[in-house]
Design a protein around this nucleic acid. Structure first.
Lengths: 257, 257
DNA sequence: ATTACCCACTGGTCTGACCAGTTTTACAGT
DNA sequence: ACTGTAAAACTGGTCAGACCAGTGGGTAAT
């Protein structure tokens, strides 16, 4: 609940992590609304919250900008021109996956090593709600599954970094699951991969878990690249595409009169 | 202009003037909208602004309430919530290294794969200024060497993440070099590791580069843990030192190894 | 080349609807 | 009368689509 809160929180994280540099222009309200799949009103409320907190400044007709002061402390020695092309650039998605490949592997490794019984229970729970034949819109369960594993690594830094990447991913593309799931064969292979990762962690086999998790992300990575190469455009949420609801039942957009 | 701003301002004045006592319930959004002659959306934006500033709290189905602790230190407790958790926590250092282990490996892998002649030149240059028998304070060359490799990976996301970790590391510990370098044997082994990584990248051997880089970080990791276990305390940067502090030369940052 | 205008952006506001919690009210059964 | 519970009548949360108001780039007329 409290979508606006969550969004303001995420955006702040993104800024603090350096995903959005100071003085940089944020995406427009309409873009954010579309990308994040919420109404513009919610975006505006979230932005006002950040505004009240002094994180951003808004100029009529121009846009919203990250305040100079806020990130001054977050990134003492910020060498700017490295990370400006992030938003929306296709390559960023693959760069992201390249990094995730490593981190998810490490997370699985550590999880198999350190998970407490509670962690294992959480992972099991997330895993069980993963297979529900629900064709589209199991993006959320998928994410929860990975999230549970990452948290079981008991490495706060790892959690934090991967969370930051997730946020960046949200701004970049509404991707993987929406693209891969529709293809039956893909879905089966991914399901199998998930199961093997799950089993490796439950069996406390760190090296196997790491290998499988790494391979999983790499598989997704390569699959998306193949799809794109074949001409089938990756589904990107854009303004002209009213979002055919890939995220499922968070809120049914339906029967509006 | 900026009706929402004006309203949030007026409401805050009202609260500060005692018109609304702490813990007291504010008028409902619909009431405010009617009384002030604006739409409810504007009211909501104004309230979110106050919310972000910590002036009010809102509870679904109940209403908005004046916060107990108004303004005053509302901004004092507003600093980086995530950094605070990390800094000073001893374990964080090891968590950090655990993550770096993966990312440096990946960076070396990609560098061996993608480095342009210019990249190689930069790496070579950084590598050559690395060995100058200068016992202490070669933290900077060390950092430049790693930095050159990371940038040669041509993955902006990777660069960004590792840069963020470096900043975090600065807050955590002034570590590795200061701790490890004094020990002659350590220094030799580290130098050897550096040379091998360098050679692997120059020879375009991605897998070797990755393995060596990972092993390198792990070696540092384990060495520090051993040192700490022996009772020799790791040199840590005190927390009371504000990070915006620009005392200049005292900064011997770049705790890379 | 300069100017003026138009159009495509951006944020700002409005309306009216529906969803989701919370509290009150009112009516049924005892 | 008393009590329970169900139905209103609140509250904030979200949505959709519209229109107004600044901003800036491009283009046609000068």
């Amino acid at each position: 609940m409290a979508i606006a809160q969550e969004i303001s929180f995420r955006l702040e994280q993104l800024i603090l992590d350096g995903g959005l540099a100071p003085e940089q222009k944020m995406p427009s309200e309409r873009q954010l609304a579309t990308r994040l799949g919420v109404s513009r009103a919610v975006i505006r409320e979230a932005l006002h919250e950040l505004q009240g907190r002094g994180v951003i400044e808004t100029r009529h007709g121009k846009g919203s900008f990250v305040s100079r002061i806020i990130s001054a402390e977050a990134e003492a020695s910020q060498e700017g021109p490295l990370l400006q092309m992030f938003a929306g650039h296709p390559r960023t998605l693959y760069d992201l996956l390249e990094v995730r490949e490593q981190l998810e592997g490490q997370a699985a490794y550590l999880a198999a090593l350190r998970a407490t019984p509670q962690d294992l229970h959480k992972i099991t729970k997330a895993f069980s709600t993963l297979d529900q034949t629900d064709p589209l819109s199991n993006a959320k369960p998928d994410h929860l599954f990975h999230q549970a594993i990452v948290e079981a690594s008991h490495n706060p830094v790892l959690v934090h970094v991967l969370n930051g990447l997730k946020n960046l991913m949200l701004l970049t593309v509404q991707a993987s699951v929406a693209n891969l799931n529709p293809r039956e064969e893909m879905r089966n292979r991914i399901t199998t991969q998930h199961r093997r990762i799950y089993q490796a962690i439950m069996a406390r086999k760190p090296d196997a878990a790491k290998r499988l998790a790494t391979a999983h992300v790499r598989f997704v990575h390569e699959s998306m690249r193949d799809i794109e190469r074949q001409g089938t455009k990756i589904i990107r949420v854009s303004m002209d595409q009213p979002l055919t609801d890939t995220t499922g039942k968070a809120h049914e957009p339906s029967s509006r009169v």
